[in-house]
Simulated assay, not measured.
Amino acid sequence: MSEQILTNARLVLDNEVLTGSLVIRDDRITDVAAGASHAPGAIDCDGDYLLPGLIELHTDNMEKYFQPRPKVAWPERQAALAHDAQMAASGITTVFDALSIGDIDEDGMREGALEAMARSLGEIGRHGLARVDHRLHLRCEVCHPQTLTRFRELCELPELGLVSLMDHSPGQRQFASLEHYRTYYQGKYGLDDTAMETFMARALDNSRRYSGAHRSAIAELCHARGLALASHDDATLAHVSESHEYGVRVAEFPTTLEAARASGQVGMAVMMGAPNLVRGGSHSGNVAAMTLAEAGLLDVLSSDYYPAALLDAVFRLAHSTADYNLPRAVACASAHPAEAVGLADRGRLTPGRRADLIRVREIDDHPLIRRVWCAGRIVH
């Protein structure tokens, strides 16, 4: 049996920060105790923090490695391993890689790369090449004509653990502001004004034709397979009521204070983007993550498009005027996301849990990752 003893660490537990020692045997935490360990070979952590490994429920970071530039496809395994290394370096030990079904850009590469990304994640896991634990999160663009068909083809993947329902058509949810919609998609795809109007008209027509039926059918399939379900960009009480009726567990990125409060009241975990918190606001003009934190409504943080933002956001939240001390802030990126998707074996520094850990030193109020363990193995 392999044993590692970490001592002289500030252990971030559920309700306190305890200066003490932690023991890892094989892939599990077996002991947590106050005070120093004098056992031979104990590793002195020099007063650094020990945190549970971060759990990321929603990141589309992997897509950037598979398509580093427009119309450029990268070899599958190399792309997956580069993404995996960035997750480990960011302190993320469990990641639900978000893959999109139904690209609203009909000329985009997302749809074509979908199976390659899913396949490569399965392969690096089976061959023992992955540093961290990868799961799948299928983001279903319910307004796309082929989304339901493609979801039926992919919903039996063994890595699949989370499904989100989203509609990025203009004039609602994330893009209630048409100005923000135009700015985002014209910048992303380089569309002139005429092409942009055509793009918007097609998106609106598809939303009217497909969104409702696809949302209902995918939710039913998820419940039949025991898959956790997330909403996306709920903005109104009607949106929240609909999500609750579908059995949604995670309210991803509610765009208004009203929607976030209603989501919490019906038992959904409210997730917000770590970049939103670090930057001080939403790039789409929606509610700020810190506004929700100050109202006590923030349950889960996600790095979204910038992996390193997750740990930064945890410490920024702990140092803010909101009522989140370090244990509560850390739980937003560990225990709470684990609970939201039914992972009972990780997310806390308690005996019996997976030995997913991060050793962190704070320098000028910035968290510096010094070591990362995933299932007891040093991965960074």
Results as ranks from 00 to 15, higher is better:
residue 9 A to G: 06
residue 74 W to P: 00
residue 366 H to E: 01
residue 201 A to T: 11
residue 349 L to A: 12
residue 113 A to M: 12
residue 79 A to V: 07
residue 250 V to W: 14
residue 21 S to I: 08
residue 121 L to S: 04
residue 158 P to A: 09
residue 32 V to D: 04
residue 295 A to Y: 03
residue 337 P to K: 03
residue 53 G to Q: 08
residue 308 A to M: 04
residue 307 P to I: 01
residue 296 G to T: 10
residue 94 T to Y: 03
residue 259 A to Y: 09
residue 186 Q to D: 11
residue 77 R to L: 15
residue 62 M to K: 01
residue 288 A to C: 06
residue 288 A to L: 04
residue 141 E to W: 00
residue 166 M to S: 11
residue 71 K to D: 12
residue 111 E to F: 02
residue 113 A to V: 00
residue 340 A to I: 14
residue 224 A to G: 08
residue 39 A to G: 01
residue 263 S to F: 07
residue 329 A to H: 13
residue 260 A to L: 08
residue 62 M to L: 14
residue 198 T to R: 09
residue 123 E to V: 14
residue 10 R to F: 00
residue 342 G to W: 13
residue 264 G to M: 09
residue 333 A to Q: 10
residue 98 A to Q: 06
residue 304 D to F: 04
residue 133 D to S: 10
residue 236 T to F: 02
residue 276 N to K: 07
residue 242 E to D: 13
residue 301 L to H: 04
residue 114 L to D: 10
residue 52 P to K: 02
residue 321 T to Y: 03
residue 7 T to G: 02
residue 374 C to M: 04
residue 348 R to Q: 12
residue 170 P to G: 11
residue 115 E to R: 05
residue 82 A to D: 12
residue 357 L to W: 06
residue 78 Q to E: 15
residue 7 T to F: 04
residue 310 L to S: 07
residue 3 E to P: 01
residue 364 D to I: 03
residue 329 A to T: 15
residue 63 E to W: 04
residue 5 I to W: 06
residue 98 A to H: 03
residue 139 R to Q: 12
residue 265 Q to W: 14
residue 323 D to I: 08
residue 322 A to L: 08
residue 143 C to M: 12
residue 109 M to D: 11
residue 194 T to P: 03
residue 252 E to P: 14
residue 121 L to D: 04
residue 39 A to K: 01
residue 129 L to F: 06
residue 37 S to I: 05
residue 156 E to K: 07
residue 369 I to E: 02
residue 82 A to T: 11
residue 305 Y to Q: 12
residue 45 C to P: 05
residue 129 L to I: 00
residue 240 V to H: 04
residue 162 L to P: 13
residue 66 F to N: 00
residue 96 F to E: 06
residue 161 G to K: 13
residue 199 F to D: 07
residue 379 V to C: 10
residue 291 T to M: 10
residue 13 L to V: 05
residue 277 L to E: 15
residue 319 H to K: 14
residue 70 P to A: 10
residue 55 I to K: 01
residue 234 D to T: 08
residue 362 E to K: 00
residue 367 P to Y: 01
residue 2 S to D: 14
residue 235 A to P: 02
residue 95 V to M: 05
residue 280 G to Q: 09
residue 198 T to L: 08
residue 100 S to W: 01
residue 167 D to W: 09
residue 299 D to W: 02
residue 5 I to T: 13
residue 175 F to L: 07
residue 353 R to S: 13
residue 7 T to I: 00
residue 6 L to P: 04
residue 194 T to A: 12
residue 31 D to K: 08
residue 111 E to K: 05
residue 111 E to A: 13
residue 175 F to Y: 15
residue 300 V to Y: 11
residue 73 A to M: 04
residue 369 I to P: 05
residue 153 E to I: 06
residue 222 C to S: 04
residue 342 G to V: 15
residue 229 L to Y: 05
residue 224 A to I: 10
residue 83 H to F: 08
residue 248 V to L: 13
residue 116 A to Y: 00
residue 179 E to N: 10
residue 191 L to H: 09
residue 299 D to A: 07
residue 58 H to N: 14
residue 42 A to Y: 02
residue 212 G to S: 09
residue 380 H to F: 13
residue 311 L to W: 01
residue 246 Y to S: 10
residue 237 L to E: 06
residue 295 A to P: 12
residue 233 D to A: 06
residue 372 V to S: 11
residue 194 T to I: 06
residue 348 R to Y: 09
residue 322 A to E: 06
